[in-house]
Design a protein around this nucleic acid. Structure first.
Lengths: 358, 358
DNA sequence: CTGAAAGCGCTTACAG
DNA sequence: CTGAAAGCGCTTACAG
């Protein structure tokens, strides 16, 4: 039969199409009522340990798996969450989803994925599907913290949590702590002996750029250092980093030059490093560079490997899941946006001046 | 209340906690029995169009959504699929998942995501969760076509389809057509006037490298062209591409040089282009370069933008979903591996010799 | 401590 | 053409 494993089909404990073992089978084998079996398996009610053990043994032996549809129907919980995202590339979403799932699987809750570039109609369809599936909650994950999905999530009958996305007033949301991440990055540059630290970053319209620039300014001020010029807003691209580095160090350009550059993301950082290298500057010796994202495929491929800020998306997903569980259980959850910690990952693009790595 | 939209909570048709509208409500409003309501909504049975319409209208007005748990319980179909993947980064999985979902949502089936780096224990847990959720089928998605999950998927009671992953004998699997993709890439280089086409690719142990190398050899032979040397196996990294290009065009190296390079992936291609550029060679004029993956973040950031092979992962996901639906419906599906088409994306890294783009 | 019964929201033979 | 009834696999008052 197509789709099946190769041999020993008949030896398998549960072949395709074979009747699934139900709680009834377990009860029968244990010689108790279905009621008792249910209670034994769920650790509810009071009964002799012997009875409970007898039921457990039967369930084990039969390979019993509770049917969560039946259970959900009566308990009014599906043990299921919906994850809505418009990140078709998966760069942000998959780490979040992995964290979310990993926190949920032990609690027996599974996650429906509704991914893809979303127009309003698709979103509506996804939302409808989630309603039919009776999800216990909805996680909305985005690509940037100042944009939401193309349609309002109308008042759902279930809790909604926004992750790495805009979040309507009064709702609960989690985003990486951009300011904190930026502070850690710049503090590291200072610690490593840099004094003239520039900031090259993405488009001005992104909330993330404003926050990262703010972190840069704040921490410098705390160290009584002046920011090196204005924050340079542009694009999230290597090319922008490359061009900006070239301009900054143009022989005919300004005499004053930075000795450290904090970049708004790893792509920009890579462009900066490439631009610097082409001009004969040494990273990290002459100039130290720090990125943001810890997008490993970039961060590890720069030469030298990039010191950068990890946004902790996996943990973000886990945290959001935890909050969702609380919400579902009716526990109080602080509305508003929570910023979860970022973590600096030190590689080789940052070092004290003149230091020469192997 | 936390997690809720801001205003007009009481005006909302379905506030949190409000009783969900059931088929019973619909039947009552339409003045028919539950049986008839069910049949009307499912387009089954025979009844006057008037009755059917009356029921539909009531359902619409009430905003009725069938409870898929109840439906699943009786129909023995959950309209739910499990997607198991060990691609924690999401580069391959999310496009596949998006394609899968997009094909499924119209059919009312949703997809559970079990993502993350998997050890045997995690996989077992995920599998167990999927069984409890009564998925109708399981899609196993991998990062490479010659590796599976850490444990055997035992004989499930549901169909299993493998995507971009190894696939046990007798099972059904879908993978990108590596040979075809390679042929398209190399045919394009030939069409553009290249005659000495080299191949730089990933580690020898990957099945994909062997297939892509085979496509390279085949199509050259068909054009009565000799491959330029042996395929150069190494790593899937920029660095490997960079170093290899440098060696290949070492002034003290071999006199014979390629005028086209087909790379095993986009990272290698990028390294090659960077290496070539640093040596003062012009891409595409002096040497044309083609990659594999169409990983846009790389392909668009190379200078010039990279001509490359798109693996069609979105379509792959859709195709696999379609096959799964057939399997579930008991329709016959050819066991074995199906190779789905790749598509060449022409950008600026390939052109006739001497051509100088703007 | 244990069990018979009702019910979650649907679908589907079986009657009429 | 339409409906009353049984049942999917569970849980949970309610009795004993």
């Amino acid at each position: 039969m197509p789709g099946e494993g190769p041999e020993q089909s008949k030896a398998a404990p549960a072949g395709r199409g074979l009747a699934r073992v139900t709680i009834r089978d377990v009860a029968e084998m244990a010689g108790v009522s279905v009621t008792t079996a249910s209670r034994a398996l769920n650790d509810t009610g009071r009964m002799t340990e012997a009875t409970r053990e007898k039921v457990r043994a039967a369930a084990d032996q039969l390979g019993y798996r509770p049917n969560s549809m039946a259970r959900g129907l009566v308990s009014r919980r599906s043990f299921t969450l919906g994850l809505l995202t418009n990140d078709s590339y998966g760069r942000f979403t998959l780490p979040i989803a992995a964290g979310l799932s990993s926190g949920m699987v032990d609690r027996g809750v599974s996650v429906f994925l509704c991914a893809g570039e979303k127009d309003a109609e698709r979103t509506r369809l996804d939302l409808q599907a989630m309603e039919e599936k009776c999800v216990d909650g909805l996680i909305v994950a985005g690509k940037r913290i100042d944009r939401g999905l193309p349609i309002d999530i109308p008042h759902q009958r279930v809790p909604v949590i926004y992750v790495n996305s805009a979040c309507p007033p009064g709702a609960v949301g989690f985003v990486p702590d951009d300011i904190g991440g930026a502070r850690a990055a710049v503090a590291h540059l200072v610690a490593v002996g840099r004094q003239r630290i520039a900031h090259i970053t993405g488009p001005r319209q992104f909330a993330a750029t404003a926050l990262r620039a703010q972190g840069w300014r704040e921490i410098l001020e705390e160290h009584e250092l002046a920011p090196f010029g204005e924050a340079l807003f542009g694009e999230w691209s290597e090319d922008f980093g490359y061009r900006t580095a070239q301009t900054m160090f143009d022989p005919d350009g300004p005499a004053e030059r930075p000795d450290g550059i904090f970049c708004g993301n790893d792509q920009i950082a890579r462009g900066v490093i490439d631009g610097l290298t082409l001009l004969g500057l040494r990273v990290p010796d002459d100039i130290s560079v720090v990125g943001f994202d810890n997008w490993e495929i970039f961060a590890k491929a720069t030469r030298p490997p990039l010191t950068t800020v990890d946004m902790g998306l996996f943990d973000l997903g886990q945290t959001a899941g935890q909050a969702m569980l609380d919400l579902i259980d009716g526990k109080p959850v602080e509305p508003g946006i929570t910023r979860t910690p970022c973590r600096l990952v030190v590689r080789e693009s940052s070092a004290p001046p003149g230091h020469r790595p192997l």
